Deep mutational scan, measured.
Amino acid sequence: NITNLCPFDEVFNATRFASVYAWNRKRISNCVADYSVLYNLAPFFTFKCYGVSPTKLNDLCFTNVYADSFVIRGDEVRQIAPGQTGNIADYNYKLPDDFTGCVIAWNSNKLDSKVSGNYNYLYRLFRKSNLKPFERDISTEIYQAGNKPCNGVAGFNCYFPLRSYSFRPTYGVGHQPYRVVVLSFELLHAPATVCGPKKST
C-alpha cells in the first residue's frame, strides 16, 4: 500500500533546468501520483496529453512515469509533440509517434532571462542524422558540413554543433524561455507502482 506522493514538485520547481540537447530525465515510481497538483503548480502555457485524457490521469496506474525536463524558446514548444519536425524535434528531443503522456510548458522569462542575455541554455544546431525517439546526444564533436574532414577544428564548413540561446527579458514571447516537462507513461507487463490517489488504497 503506497502512500508517499510522487515528487513532481522537485521536477517542476527545480531551480535550474537542463539545456534541451542534454535534457534531464527523472524516473518516478512507487508513489501516489496526484496530477491535479500539477494544474495548480504554475499558470501553464501548455498542458497537452496524448493517448490519455488529462482529467482521467488520477484514475490510472502505470509501471513507471518518466519526467523529462529542459528549456526551449516559446515558438519551439509546438515541436514537443508526436510527429513534429524542426531543429528541436530533429536534433535535441524527439517524441515517438505513439507517445503516451503529457507535455507541460510554461513561460520562464522571469527566471531564465537576463538583461545582458542568459547564454547558459544550449541547443544542438547541427547533426548528421535525426534523433530516434527519446535519444539523447550530448556530443560536442565538430560538425563537418563540407567534404573536407574537420579534424576537430572549427572553421570553414566545420561547425561547433551547439548554439546558445541568449534569453533577454525584452524579447518577444516566441523568443522567451519556456520550461518544459514531458511526462511519459510506461505500461509494462509488470506491477503498477505509480497510481492516482483513488487507485492507491
Rank of each mutant, 00 (worst) to 15 (best):
F126E: 10
I142V: 13
C102W: 00
V180D: 00
R136W: 03
N107T: 04
L5T: 11
N109M: 10
N120R: 13
L188G: 15
Y178H: 15
F99L: 00
N87G: 08
F45W: 12
C102M: 00
K128V: 09
N157E: 15
F17H: 03
G146M: 05
A67S: 02
T201A: 14
V103C: 04
S200L: 14
Y91E: 04
I104V: 10
N118L: 05
H189N: 15
L38G: 02
D59H: 12
T193I: 09
R179V: 04
Q144C: 06
R168C: 09
A33N: 06
K198C: 11
S29T: 14
G117T: 10
S113Y: 07
F126W: 14
S19A: 06
V77Y: 03
N147C: 09
C6K: 02
G196K: 09
G146H: 06
F12W: 03
Y50E: 01
N118R: 09
Y159A: 09
G152R: 08
V194G: 10
N109G: 07
N30M: 03
L125K: 15
T100I: 13
N58G: 12
H189R: 13
L183M: 06
V182Y: 00
N92L: 03
Y93K: 02
L125H: 15
C158M: 03
G83Y: 09
K128Q: 12
L38Y: 03
V115W: 11
C195F: 07
P191C: 08
D9M: 12
K148R: 11
S200E: 13
V71P: 01
N147L: 11
Y91D: 03
V37R: 13
G51I: 00
E76Q: 13
A33T: 08
I28N: 01
P82Q: 01
C195A: 08
F47W: 15
V77L: 13
D97S: 09
P133Q: 05
C49R: 00
L60F: 08
Y93Q: 01
Y159M: 10
Q79L: 01
T193D: 14
T193Q: 12
S53R: 09
L5K: 14
G86V: 06
V11L: 10
G146P: 05
V182A: 01
S200Y: 12
F70I: 00
P7C: 09
K132V: 08
D97P: 10
C49T: 00
L95I: 11
N40V: 06
I80F: 02
G172F: 11
F12M: 06
I2P: 10
P82G: 02
H175E: 12
R25M: 02
Y121G: 03
Y178I: 07
S166H: 13
V11N: 03
Y35M: 14
D9Y: 10
T55K: 15
D68K: 01
K56L: 09
P133L: 01
L183S: 00
C158K: 05
E186L: 00
Y39I: 12
C158L: 03
G174R: 12
A22Y: 07
R27D: 08
N13F: 10
C102P: 00
P96E: 00
Y35L: 15
G86H: 01
V37W: 14
C150E: 05
K128P: 12
I104L: 09
